[in-house]
C-alpha cells in the first residue's frame, strides 16, 4: 500500500495558514503564557524566601525556576485543539462534509492539532528549554534527551486522546466547554503544572503516579531536568504507554459508535 503523504502535508499547510491569520491573538497567547509562569516564579521566590531554606523537598530555588520554565515550554507543545475542532464541526454540521474528505476525520483532527502545537509554538518551547538548562546549570545527556522526547510524544498522544474523548461528548452535550474546562483544570492541578508532584503528600503521589496525569507535564519536566531516577523514568514511560493503549481503545470504540450517530443525524 502506498502512503499518499502529499494530501496530509497539504492539509497541514492549510490548517497552519488559518492559524497564522490571527497573529496578534497568537502573540498575545504566547505573552500571557509566559506571564502566567512568571507569576508562578514570583510566588515560589516569595515562598523560598519565607521558608529560609535553600531547598524544599530536595529542590533548590533555581531548580524550581527551571521546572516552571520547562513546564512553560511543554505548555506550548503539549496541547490539543481536537475538542474544539470536534465541537465546532458537530455544532455547525461541517463534520458531515469533513467526513467526506479523502483524509479520515480523526486524521484531519490530528493534523490540525499538530499544526497548532508543534509548527507554531516549537520555537518558543525550544527557547524555554534552553533557558531552563541554563538556569539549572544542567546538561542534557543522550539517554535523558531520548527519554524526554519519548515522554513528550506520549504526553502529546495522551492529551489529544483526552481531547478526542471530550470532543466525542459534543454529540450528546452540544456544548463541551464546561467538560473541557474540568478536564484541563484537573490536568493542571494534578499533572504538576502548579507545583512539582514531590511536594504533594506521599499517598497522593502514589495514586497520581499510576494515573496518566503526571505523564503530561511532571514526568517530562523532571526527566529533562534530571530530578527523577532512571527507574522512575522507565516507570513513567511504561505507565504512559499503557494509558495510551487504554485511551486509544476507548477512543476507537467511541468513534465507531458515535460516527454512526453523526451520520444518522445528518452531520
Amino acid at each position: 500500500m502506498q502512503l499518499d503523504t502529499g494530501r496530509y502535508i497539504a492539509h497541514l499547510r492549510v490548517t497552519q495558514k488559518a492559524l497564522y491569520a490571527y497573529k496578534v491573538d497568537m502573540s498575545l497567547s504566547v505573552l500571557f503564557t509566559v506571564l502566567g509562569f512568571a507569576v508562578m516564579i514570583a510566588v515560589w521566590t516569595a515562598i523560598y524566601a519565607a521558608t529560609g531554606s535553600t531547598q524544599i523537598k530536595g529542590l533548590s530555588l533555581p531548580a524550581i525556576y527551571a521546572y516552571f520554565i520547562v513546564i512553560g515550554g511543554l505548555n506550548f507543545i503539549v496541547g490539543t485543539n481536537i475538542d474544539d475542532q470536534m465541537m465546532n464541526s458537530i455544532n455547525d454540521g461541517s463534520i458531515g462534509t469533513a467526513m467526506l474528505k479523502p483524509i479520515r476525520y480523526p486524521v484531519q483532527l490530528v493534523l490540525g492539532t499538530i499544526a497548532d502545537s508543534f509548527s507554531l509554538f516549537s520555537v518558543p518551547a525550544l527557547l524555554f528549554f534552553i533557558a531552563a538548562l541554563a538556569i539549572a546549570h544542567a546538561g542534557l545527556g543522550l539517554w535523558q534527551a531520548a527519554a524526554f522526547l519519548a515522554e513528550v510524544v506520549m504526553a502529546f498522544c495522551i492529551i489529544n486522546l483526552f481531547g478526542f474523548l471530550v470532543g466525542l461528548a459534543a454529540i450528546y452535550l452540544t456544548n463541551v466547554y464546561g467538560l473541557v474546562s474540568i478536564v484541563f483544570s484537573v490536568i493542571s492541578i494534578l499533572g504538576g503544572m502548579v507545583a512539582p508532584l514531590t511536594f504533594y503528600p506521599q499517598w497522593a503521589q502514589n495514586i497520581l503516579y499510576l494515573s496518566p496525569l503526571p505523564s503530561m507535564f511532571y514526568f517530562p519536566a523532571s526527566t529533562f531536568l534530571g530530578t527523577i531516577s532512571t527507574a522512575m523514568i522507565w516507570q513513567s514511560i511504561a505507565v504512559g504507554f499503557v494509558w495510551i493503549l487504554i485511551l486509544l481503545g476507548i477512543a476507537a470504540v467511541g468513534w465507531k459508535k458515535m460516527s454512526i450517530k453523526v451520520a444518522l443525524a445528518g452531520g
Binding site: I47, K57, V194, A195
Partner: peptide, 16 residues
C-alpha cells in the same frame, strides 16, 4: 483547586 494549591504550598513550606 485554589484550596489544594494553597494547602500544598503550606504543606511543604512556611508559605508567604
Amino acid at each position: 483547586s485554589t484550596f489544594i494549591t494553597i494547602s500544598v504550598v503550606y504543606y511543604v513550606s512556611s508559605g508567604i
